[in-house]
Amino acid sequence: MKQLLLRHKQILFFIIAGGLSAIVEIGSFKLFSVYLPRVFASEYNLYGIKYPFSNIFSTSCGIITNYFLSIWFVFERGKHSKRKEFAYFISVSVVSTIISLILFQILYHYVFKDAFDLGFYVLSQEMMSKISSILIVSLLNYSVKKKVIFNG
């Protein structure tokens, strides 16, 4: 078991960094989705898009957290300069954000129709959509970041 963990250390650290980033993203989404509609009434439904600003702001928090955790714990620096590496990371993250926003809307409108009661916590339609879109996009992010940005 120890050998398996050592062999897949990078994937394990990516999962941990992704998990921590997801906690930041989900936590900030919860805060934004509760407080932003009080300031922007259209936040709940902007031309049929549910929680657009909450999604963008929370995803940005998650991206920044993930960047720093990735360079500190997950990936070794590649052949790119720090500036170019950061630009690539942000570019991939912007594309991932767009994919995540689209997935969120699809999941929110068509998949998760009701809240899910866990007994100790109730997952709302918004939270289930957000968590699911994060998990799906994470798979894409790992492979692109490893192969393109950090050349590993």
Rank of each mutant, 00 (worst) to 15 (best):
S96T: 13
F75L: 12
S81A: 14
W72F: 14
I102R: 03
I56G: 04
F89K: 02
I63K: 05
L101A: 12
K50Y: 13
Y47G: 11
I56Y: 06
E85D: 09
A87D: 07
F89P: 02
C61L: 13
C61K: 04
E85R: 01
I71A: 01
I64N: 01
S54H: 09
Y47I: 12
S100W: 03
S58F: 06
A87R: 12
P52N: 05
N55W: 09
K50M: 07
H80Q: 13
N55I: 10
F53R: 01
G78W: 09
S91R: 02
N66A: 15
K79C: 03
F75R: 10
Q105T: 01
E76H: 13
K79T: 11
V94I: 15
Y88E: 07
I98W: 08
G78E: 11
L101T: 05
I63V: 15
F73N: 00
F104S: 05
E76M: 07
N66C: 10
F73D: 01
F104C: 04
F53D: 00
R77K: 15
I64Y: 04
I90V: 15
I98Q: 10
V92W: 11
S60M: 14
I71L: 02
S91A: 13
R77E: 06
K84T: 03
Y47V: 08
Y47R: 04
Y88W: 14
R77M: 02
E85N: 04
S96H: 09
S70C: 08
I56W: 06
F68M: 01
V94K: 04
F89G: 05
F104E: 05
S96L: 15
F104R: 04
G78P: 08
I63Q: 03
F73Q: 01
F68K: 00
S81H: 09
L69F: 11
I90D: 03
S81D: 14
G62A: 14
N55D: 02
K84F: 05
S100G: 13
F75W: 13
F89W: 07
V74N: 07
I102S: 11
S91N: 12
F53C: 05
F104W: 10
F86S: 02
G62F: 04
V95Q: 08
V74I: 07
Y51K: 05
F53W: 13
G62K: 03
F68P: 01
S91M: 08
N55P: 00
I71N: 00
L46S: 14
H80Y: 13
A87V: 14
S100Y: 06
I71S: 01
S58M: 06
V92F: 15
